[in-house]
Amino acid sequence: MIVIKNVSKEFRLHHQGGSKINVIKNCNLEIKKGECVALTGSSGSGKSTLIRMIYGNYLYNSGQISIDGEILSFKTPRKTIELRRSKIGYVSQFLRVIPRVKTIDTVLEPLLLNKIGYKKGIIKVKKMLKELNISQNLWELSPSTFSGGEQQRVNIARGFIFDYPVLLLDEPTASLDNKNRDVVLSLIKKTKKKNTAILGIFHDQEIRKEICDREIDVSLMK
């Protein structure tokens, strides 16, 4: 589902003496349907960079990334938008809030973009928000004033609401208490059963043991 071939990434900082930072060199990785793979490595080793490259948020300097047989390239931004709409779900570390947009609409958006009707969609969204213990009096509010954990759960709801074939998770449980952490774990397990290819960063070793099939050490991709 996700195929990464000989991908390298370096950052060139023009305003800091033109310094070059090699983050990833010759990465080869394949993640199949229904597989959950964890990225490991110390902080700064390039885990989030790799995830962002697969989401098309960072571009790569050489090699090739493809999603479900379609090449993801910075040269074809419209294709990336289309792949994100239909194939790639992404839960980032932080929710990027759009001011004034209600929680319920924030979570509903991926469904509407995929032509799932409002009526059907809203039922799904309500179920998801309940499952993630987001109290009902928050649904009509914009998440901009929510606590970190609440924002993160809205973010998770948005990532899991549509059955994307590929799901990228960047520390989805980082700011959650144990109860909500368990909810997210069960969501991930359910998603795996739907044959989704999952690539994630999980700092908690127990979580990795519980849900992941393999671990890949990013610090070795140098």
Partner: peptide, 18 residues
């Protein structure tokens, strides 16, 4: 030129980085 969040999060040109 490019996808909005890619240009903003991973700018390539000297001027865009600035």
């Amino acid at each position: 030129t490019g996808l909005t969040d890619q240009v903003l999060d991973d700018p390539q040109h000297e001027y865009t980085q600035l």
